[in-house]
Design a binder for these strands. Structure first.
Lengths: 232, 232
DNA sequence: CCATCGCCAAGAGCAGTGCTCTCGGAAGTT
DNA sequence: AACTTCCGAGAGCACTGCTCTTGGCGATGG
């Protein structure tokens, strides 16, 4: 029957859920390299080989955690954006920046798994691509809507973008239609700038140098907003 | 005698050198997590326990590689800067940016060890601090000398930096005397921006999105130079 | 209702890891 | 020549990811 089969499937799904939950807890305390299938099995009162019924390899478990992580940061970013007045574009940008940083500080090991050095030998499967673009889509929407509302006027400090990046810009424009190549390039600049400063804070480059990190971050993001020409 | 003692010391130093060389080769091919003391020992025809006479733990070997890595990128940056006319500040900035990116692309695993996710449980000892600031010192010098030469005029796009970061700015000013808090904040922005884009390129965030990476990088760095007000 | 098939936990086992300990020999010191 | 120090070798511990086999339990089909 379908019912019984779904019962089987249900307990299976629940076990998978429990495995990822325990794995995420381990990831949070030990870090990615300390994630051990055997330890997860021990925590569940199972034998290590049983785990392999649900995750064929450690990398598959990592993939599940990565997908969860991208979705978590994506959701946090979407919520932060949604909580802002639609026409406060600078506010929306700052809100999503704070959301990213706060989530990163709260889940440093998960963040490192997403945006840090890739695990050697690990090739991100296609399943991770879609969740990985959730936050980026929000950024793109903010820029696109600000542009459409006429609230985007980039100050003329940048040189003209080279023609070589026109093709890439065309692809990126899927996220933010109608903006110029110059704006696309600036968007990439502030996008990488956001994650660059979060990386430096989390990965230790600010140690012994910068102490008022929240204030610096806030100011930095405001400057990047001004750099791309967000007004208000 | 001193001579014999130094003979002992010399063969010891040579062995340490050989260990780090082999370890660096392994790091380049396998990545940090694939670095194995036993494999290094095998490559040297030693038994694994003998390695511990020279490096008390795997982390100590990692530390040696990290120090070497910081010095390598520091030297590359210094050379790139030194090859430029002293008063071509924009050119110097772009040259060091390219040097960082080229080195990162040539030594991805070493770069990841320096600027990627920290190895869990690994605490960078004080020995790594000084080498880690070699590249930063070059950046600071470029900004400072441009300011002194009157060739630094930041466009007025940024809000005023908050007073909270004044203390940090004072510390950073050791690298670039006499500049304003605003310039310090912008310097941090372009500094994190440089490594942010290199991180994204190396760690896979540009995959399936950006193909003309050298051109985008070049343009991006030129924009950051304009952002901090480098003229010429 | 019974036989069958498929899923799954358990255990043993392999090859590898970091690291510790002991032992014996060689090199340097007095 | 005796002694101390250093160092390589080997065995061993606890751990890892992963594979294979075994046996049982539950769902399925006749």
């Amino acid at each position: 029957m379908n019912a019984s089969r779904t019962a089987r499937e249900r307990v299976r799904a629940e076990l998978i859920q429990e495995i990822t939950t325990i794995a995420r807890r381990q990831l949070a305390t030990e870090g990615a390299s300390g994630l051990s299938l055997r330890a997860v099995a021990r925590d569940m009162g199972m034998v290590s080989s049983a785990i392999y019924r649900y995750f064929p390899s450690r990398d598959d478990l990592l993939t599940a955690l990565i997908v969860d992580g991208y979705n978590a940061v994506g959701e946090v970013v979407e919520r932060a954006d949604a909580a802002c007045p639609r026409d406060d574009f600078t506010g929306r940008w700052l809100a999503v920046c704070r959301a990213v940083r706060d989530w990163a500080l709260a889940h440093p090991h998960e963040y490192a798994l997403l945006y840090g050095s890739p695990v050697p030998g690990y090739q991100a499967p296609v399943d991770t691509i879609a969740p990985a673009t959730r936050d980026t889509a929000v950024f793109g929407a903010i820029i696109a809507e600000a542009h459409r509302a006429g609230r985007l006027s980039p100050p003329p400090v940048c040189p003209e973008p080279p023609v070589a990046i026109a093709a890439d810009a065309e692809a990126v424009r899927a996220l933010m239609p109608d903006v110029s190549d110059d704006v696309v390039a600036r968007a990439i600049t502030i996008w990488t700038g956001l994650y660059g400063i979060v990386n430096f804070e989390l990965f230790g480059q600010f140690d012994n140098v910068i102490t008022h990190r929240a204030e610096l971050f806030e100011h930095n993001m405001a400057c990047l907003a001004a750099f791309i020409g967000l007004t208000g």
